[in-house]
């Protein structure tokens, strides 16, 4: 089908338990797979989602329980992922984005979360209100492989060149 505009959307809500992380990233990867991404693009998205969800669970909700929401949209060949929580929020976003910055060095955190999201995705945007929650939005373009419509269909056509 030619010139088909690809639009799709999904929403996922789950409890802030760390064993839901695998579920979250696999679901997003499965949803994105309709764009026919490469293995590399899929693992970039999975890692970025995992980081954002970990942040929501470990830092946003800390020891309390809450709901983490993922909204994933596909527009043509672009993926838009929004991960939000109603946790405690980030005090200083610029500081949090710094590589190796972590609020909990004692717990063996590498402080690479936002850095990984930033470098694996095309666009990263963080909005946060103290006490109300955090919303991370990310965008990534999936490179489309060349359409094979121009390929010769029959053997005769192929031989003719």
């Amino acid at each position: 089908m030619k010139n088909k505009i690809n639009n799709n959307e999904m929403k996922l809500e789950f409890l802030s338990k760390s064993n839901n992380e695998a579920f979250a990233r696999i679901s997003v990867a499965a949803f994105v797979s309709q764009l026919d991404p490469t293995i590399e693009e899929i693992s970039d998205i999975k890692t970025a989602v995992s980081e954002a969800v970990t942040n929501a669970i470990v830092h946003g909700y800390e020891d309390s329980m809450g709901i983490v929401t993922i909204i994933c949209k596909i527009h043509e060949n672009e993926v838009y992922i929004e991960i939000s929580d109603n946790g405690k929020g980030i005090e200083n976003i610029e500081m949090a984005k710094q590589p190796l910055y972590t609020t909990r060095p004692n717990l063996e955190r590498s402080g690479m979360g936002f850095t990984i999201m930033e470098s694996f995705m095309d666009e990263l945007n963080v909005q946060s209100i103290l006490g109300l929650g955090t919303k991370v939005t990310m965008k990534k373009k999936i490179k489309q492989t060349e359409e094979i419509e121009d390929m010769p269909v029959t053997l005769e056509e192929a031989l003719r060149g």
Binding site: K46, T54, E108, R109, S110, I116
Partner: peptide
Amino acid sequence: TFMDSAGIGMVIG
């Protein structure tokens, strides 16, 4: 097959 920054933290630890 998959590792994120938690894994990096673990190895550094």
